[in-house]
Nucleic acid binder design. Structure first.
Lengths: 193, 193
DNA sequence: ACAAATGGAGAACGTGCGTTCTCCCTCTCG
DNA sequence: CGAGAGGGAGAACGCACGTTCTCCATTTGT
């Protein structure tokens, strides 16, 4: 009764396997140092199929960032949704960052890293990075206005979160999350006068 | 009367020319997309000399980051030194960031970008990035304690500055400097009770 | 002035990698 | 059963680039 043929299912499965491998390798080792052959080796998807699904490496990179963006923001939202009180929900963002930073394979923000690597050469990557950061900031903005706080606060909290991500990545520590969270608490408090 | 021979002077001059070209090209286009031949073309220093001065590309990259670090912190300090009042000096940091962000060839933080590009593969680059960020944070720490403010504030201001740099780079705008500066003002004020 | 070292221009070498192609096996469908 | 499409393994191709080498011209020291 479903409209997908067996072949379409196989393609979709291969696509997911390819993206799983791409995400693991690109995030861990960077994009340029991972070859299409590495993706094939890690995913079990043949080169022929890989190029059938993603006609060029850049498109695989784009799809990797796109899928990771959805999942990342989903995980964040799930954590935040564990709280009701609007002010608490804002701080939950930094709390979640701290959890993320302590994951064993944490290697910084995938988008910031990708931008550093390909921002000067790949417009598709740039678009993904701007899109992701814009979506994250919009999400923060929603939390801020839901708490009845002024929109200007959004930018400040966003910068704290970005600073925490970069710094946690570079120093390989989770501390920045707490430091940013504390600063966020102060900034929110200041707005409430 | 000086102890440098003509040859040593020529080498030193070539070294500076090479580093000038490296800085311009690496910063503008990223490190991996710039070949040693590009450096040669832009600097006029022959490949032979280049490899004599820097036996491998990684060493040229290291030297580029090292020289830029010194200059960057010097320029920052010069701006801050235009002010006397300790609290004002802290805000001057964000002011200077804003000036930097509006420079026409601004392309984000060279160290954050380099880390995204080579953090997973080059220990030398990682060391330079950590060194630079550590030095910047220490500098901030000096300003904070000179203002009689608690050390914990340093981390928060540092994260704001980092967030501003990343965001200014990605969005190609100078706004983050003002936003971070305003947040810094609030955080400093909150500490003074 | 001459032998020897120095330096430049650019070819050459080796390798890595994105992308495509070849060969062969295996299903599918009439 | 048989023809033909689909798919996998991996070779092959083209190119970019880090690094080294060759061939000369120029300089340097005596």
């Amino acid at each position: 009764m479903d409209s997908t043929t067996a072949r379409e299912q196989a393609l979709a499965a291969a696509r997911e396997q390819a993206l799983d491998a791409a995400e693991e390798l690109f995030y861990a080792r960077g994009i340029q140092t991972v070859g299409m052959d590495d993706i094939r080796g890690a995913s079990g998807v043949s080169l022929k199929r890989l190029y059938q699904l993603f006609p060029a490496k850049e498109l695989l990179v784009e799809a990797y960032l796109k899928r990771r963006d959805v999942r990342w923001r989903q995980r964040l939202a799930e954590h935040v949704d564990g709280y009701e009180e609007p002010g608490r929900r804002i701080l939950a963002v930094f709390e979640w960052l701290g959890q993320w930073f302590t994951e064993p394979d944490f290697r910084g923000c995938a988008w910031i890293n990708s931008y550093g690597e390909l921002g000067a050469t790949s417009p598709r990557v740039v678009a993904q990075v701007r899109g992701h950061k814009g979506a994250f900031k919009d999400y923060l903005g929603g939390l801020v206005t839901a708490a009845g706080l002024p929109g200007a606060l959004t930018d400040q909290l966003f910068l704290l979160a970005e600073g925490a991500m970069v710094t946690a990545g570079i120093t390989r520590s989770a501390e920045p999350a707490e430091q940013a969270g504390e600063a966020a608490r102060v900034l929110v408090e200041a707005q409430r006068r």
